[in-house]
């Protein structure tokens, strides 16, 4: 259990570093795929099978194909030779470490988590045993279409707006030229 967590966490971390540090855009995209697959493994460890499947299908499938397609279409290549690259990377590294320490400190302070990593407060009804007895996807679907129906509907509206916006942005502007 913790061996798998360690492996997946290291792979996810290296993938995240690769996204930022790669000089070529396509290497960044491949590092992001690595990061997302490792994250899917972590979701499986967290008893979120449906999220793991969606992560693979939507992110590593659809979104990354879109990224690779755009990279191939525009072929930015190796144009990026950063001026003053050391200063930027140094500042970025210091910022990333400081940010990580800040968030880590805030999430692991004594308010949400006490000693021994135990969460304070009462636990909800969806223990892993209860969820698996009803079925993980079934439980998620029940919740999505009852308690969280409004966010779900707003999400569908947002997808419609995004599709229309993408078509509008990428149309040919004959009348302007």
């Amino acid at each position: 259990m913790s061996v798998i967590f360690g492996l997946a966490a290291v792979i996810a971390f290296l993938g995240a570093l690769g996204v930022v540090l790669s000089q070529r855009t396509i290497y960044s995209a491949m590092s992001l795929v690595l990061n997302m697959v490792a994250l899917a493994v972590l979701f499986l460890l967290l008893d979120a099978q449906f999220i793991a499947a969606v992560q693979i299908i939507v992110y590593a499938g659809a979104v990354m194909v879109l990224f690779v397609f755009i990279i191939a279409l525009l072929s930015p290549g190796a144009e990026e030779r950063l001026r003053s690259v050391e200063l930027r990377l140094l500042l970025g590294g210091v910022g990333a470490v400081a940010f990580t320490l800040l968030i880590g400190r805030l999430t692991l302070n004594g308010i949400t988590v006490g000693a021994h990593g135990r969460l304070h407060g009462a636990l909800g009804p969806f223990s892993p045993a209860a969820v698996n007895a009803h079925g993980q996807v079934q439980t998620l679907g029940d919740q999505l279409f009852t308690t969280y129906l409004l966010p779900f509907e707003v999400t569908s509206l947002m997808l419609l707006v995004a599709a229309v916006g993408a078509v509008y942005l990428s149309r040919r502007r004959r009348q302007l030229a």
Binding site: F5, F13, A16, R88, L91, G92, G95, A96, T100, L108
Partner: peptide, 26 residues
């Protein structure tokens, strides 16, 4: 529940790397 801080620290590290990338990359 021993892995709980590990997941959160990984999440914080990924967010920090991503935020630094947004600021650094062009």
């Amino acid at each position: 529940s021993g892995l709980f801080p590990g997941f959160l620290i990984l999440s914080a590290a990924m967010f920090g790397i991503g935020a630094a990338g947004v600021l650094v990359r062009r």
